[in-house]
């Protein structure tokens, strides 16, 4: 008879105090523990970059819901990553205004520059490429989002310059605090705008 080993994980040993207190704060805003599930996933992802099985189990335990239920939620929403991602996740808009304005060329340039396709991560662990529905910048198409930063009026050259700027900002170091992404992105964007306006 084959024995299946089950591991009982104690969320208190897995989640950090900070993560737990942020999640508990969300719980106070909602009526039930279950309803903080999506926020909880986002909180842990913001610290760790993605949601591993262990993270998922720990959150489920903390919120007193089944892992299966939380998995159903986690896989429904596209901004929850259930696989490891690079330090910078590129969300390029493939909706209609960006289509009419030729995002395809920008996408092609990004894929060629990084040597990856949708859903893949570069070998140095820096970039993951994903598509995204309309980013609400249709009057400034084509558009992509990296971290919290939206980049607009893209051309192939501008997109490659943005990626180069981001990888230089890290000196090839793919780890690091994921919360910093937004600020790195903002500085890079400012630089690019300066270049463009010169």
């Amino acid at each position: 008879m084959q024995i299946i080993k089950t591991v009982t994980l104690d969320y208190r040993q897995y989640l950090t105090e900070k993560e737990i207190s942020e999640i508990e704060h969300e719980v106070t805003i909602m009526e039930t523990r279950e309803s903080a599930g999506i926020e909880a996933l986002k909180i842990v992802q913001s610290h760790r970059g993605w949601i591993s099985d262990d993270s998922l189990n720990a959150i489920a335990q903390l919120l007193a819901i089944s892992s299966a239920q939380l998995e159903g939620v986690a896989t429904f929403y596209n901004l929850i990553y259930r696989q490891p991602v690079g330090r910078f996740v590129i969300h390029i808009c493939d909706s209609i205004s960006c289509h009419l304005n030729g995002y395809q060329k920008v996408l092609h340039a990004i894929k060629t520059h990084l040597g990856i396709d949708y859903g893949q991560t570069t070998e140095d662990g820096l970039f993951t490429l994903l598509s995204n529905v309309c980013l609400g910048g249709c009057d400034k198409a084509p558009v992509m989002m990296i971290g919290q930063q939206h980049y607009e009026y893209l051309t192939s050259e501008k997109a490659v310059a943005i990626l180069n700027g981001l990888s230089q900002s890290t000196d090839g170091n793919s780890s690091g605090d994921f919360l910093d992404k937004a600020e790195v992105g903002a500085t890079i964007d400012a630089k690019i705008v300066e270049v463009k306006n010169d």
């Binding site: 009526e31 909706s95 209609i96 205004s97 529905v133 309309c134 609400g136 910048g137 249709c138 009057d139």
Partner: peptide, 17 residues
């Protein structure tokens, strides 16, 4: 016990910003 008001700020309809 409660009544709720919710603002729909999900704006994802392509071409809407």
């Amino acid at each position: 016990e409660h009544k709720y008001l919710v603002c729909n700020a999900d704006e994802m309809e392509p071409g809407t910003f």
